[in-house]
Design a protein around this nucleic acid. Structure first.
Lengths: 237, 237
DNA sequence: TAGATTGTTAATCGATTAACAATC
DNA sequence: TAGATTGTTAATCGATTAACAATC
């Protein structure tokens, strides 16, 4: 069916910016074409995976030649939506909010955080990393008036659902949620959860396993049965 | 082979803390047993997925009865390594570092950030959220002396590899990396990358797709061919 | 006993990997 | 032409989902 494009796998999607970042380091005056083997070697990935990911992004190359560097970069940026910057409102003017405003590269990735919102009277009217901090009540009406479609939630878990509802009522279409709760939202809203507790679980479980194996190894070493097991849980990246 | 346990899928691992969080909200004086259907209903997951995840964590229940609440909680905590707290050193005393120190719940998840390290003379000797900020040169020797096995990297990308090498030299076994670069480390080191650009890519691509469909829909509406497509890219949790 | 839940095995689905043809 | 790379199809692998038996 024309117009019905296969959605790209999440895993591929998350690898594309890694490729893009490498491509952007290449001097386009010297190098005109890049190949999948070249990209793969530099980002420590498999050649086939790179090619499949580009294919999934709807990007084609030329056999034997490869991909035109500048064209590939712009195709990736376009696919990711990084070529036209979207304004975003951030709810929560705490330290996490400050940290996110410190990611100056976000604007090169199509994201411009234009203002922060909080309910702390002491913060209203101040500036956080140069951005105005407004009262949370203004979020919805301002989002509507300024046609802001992206929201970032850095408030505590207890306030996140309320804030998310405000965002939706203001016409926000996509939410980057850093609060460690599951948001209940209309299905058409795009939500990306950045739950650090889930990440920590992954990390700490692996460490725990590692430490247990170490203990087991040293125990068996003491009982003169050395059989330390090699462990490799390093992430591809 | 006895002792050779199947590693749990990453996806299952990331769901376990969600179940655990729900279980911890239950009054153990009232409820003694919980079932997969119950958990699934509360965390908006599938019953089979919950059961399979628990099975993957090596946790067994009793047919018809379910899982003993307090036992299940402690089994999950034990599996995740959240029952014995590990000390961690954090490299980078910036706003992201401050934000992470603000996650007071981390200690309940087995992670205690005991000190921060930086190379900015203005920061050395100060305190960040009550934690001492020491010179980065002290990280390796102190890690060794204090038997700290976990490291958190919140420094800029350019300094991350250097800092990671320091950590490894100090005997650190696991690294939670918030710098947007791929670290080259010995394979036995456990690394978890928290690359926000990858997350942003995922989010912005979906938003871009959504906006394009909207435009296409409104265009075709103008040309009297209304066929707006419903889109649902909401994440499970 | 009946019904609800876990345990276990099989089927499905999708992502990754492999193999080979097409191309420059 | 030969060789390297992309394009395309098939095979593999693993996670998810389904089905049904075992259990209390």
């Amino acid at each position: 069916m024309p117009g019905t494009t296969q959605p790209i796998p999440e895993a591929s999607l998350r690898r594309l910016p890694v490729y893009l970042r490498y491509l952007q380091t290449i001097d386009s005056n010297v190098v005109k074409y890049v190949s999948c083997p070249d990209i793969a070697a530099h980002v420590h990935a498999e050649v086939i995976q790179v090619r499949k990911d580009l294919e999934a992004a709807g990007i084609a190359g030329r056999p034997k030649v490869g991909y035109e560097l500048l064209k590939l970069i712009s195709q990736l940026e376009s696919f990711l939506g990084w070529d036209n910057t979207k304004d975003a409102f951030m709810a929560g003017a705490g330290s996490l909010g400050a940290a996110l405003l410190g990611y100056t590269e976000f604007v090169r990735c199509g994201l411009s955080i234009v203002a922060a919102f909080d309910n702390d009277p002491a913060k209203i009217g101040t500036r956080l990393r140069g951005k105005e901090v407004l009262h949370i009540d203004q979020l919805a009406p301002l989002a509507q008036r300024m046609h802001v479609h992206m929201g970032i939630i850095t408030v505590p878990g207890g306030a996140a659902q309320q804030v998310a509802d405000l965002m939706v009522s203001g016409g926000i279409l996509a939410i980057w949620n850093f609060a460690p709760i599951r948001l209940s939202l209309p299905p058409e809203i795009v939500v990306h959860n950045e739950n650090l507790y889930c990440s920590l679980a992954s990390l700490s479980q692996k460490v725990e396993t590692l430490l247990r194996q170490r203990r087991a190894a040293s125990d068996s070493a003491q009982s003169s049965t050395p059989n330390a097991e090699e462990v490799c849980t390093n992430e591809p990246a």
